[in-house]
Amino acid sequence: MKFDATVDIDRFQILAVIGSLFFLAFITYLVRKKKLREDYSLLWLFFGGIFLVLSIWRESLEYISRTMGVAYAPAAIFIILIMSLFMIMIQFSMIISKQANQISMLAQEVALLRLQNSDNADQESEIKP
């Protein structure tokens, strides 16, 4: 039995272009609503841009998969996508770690300030007879 592994490239390409545009529009929406900080928005705008370029320009995909030694072009996208997601996730883990440390420090600062405040209040009430 012959296994036909080709996809309907034209239809898929149209979907890919529309999908990329929606993605970019969504990121822009999040930026305008201030739900995304500028620095992280740049990351996703960059990816959206790459998706758009790859979906519009078919030859680039073929070229990339040939360079990577992959016969089936969409498999190349998956590989690149998965590796990119891993790197993004690792970066996020680093950011989360840093923020966890900052929250820790802030919590301790607040606790110490509370202590200092109550100490000051105690001292003041001692001075007044």
């Binding site: 822009t28 930026v31 305008r32 201030k34 500028e38 620095d39 928005s41 740049l42 705008l45």
Partner: peptide
């Protein structure tokens, strides 16, 4: 590059 992109992102804000 970062500055220019950051400015473009700022320009998106309402």
């Amino acid at each position: 590059i970062n500055v220019l992109l950051g400015m473009i992102v700022s320009a998106m804000r309402p």
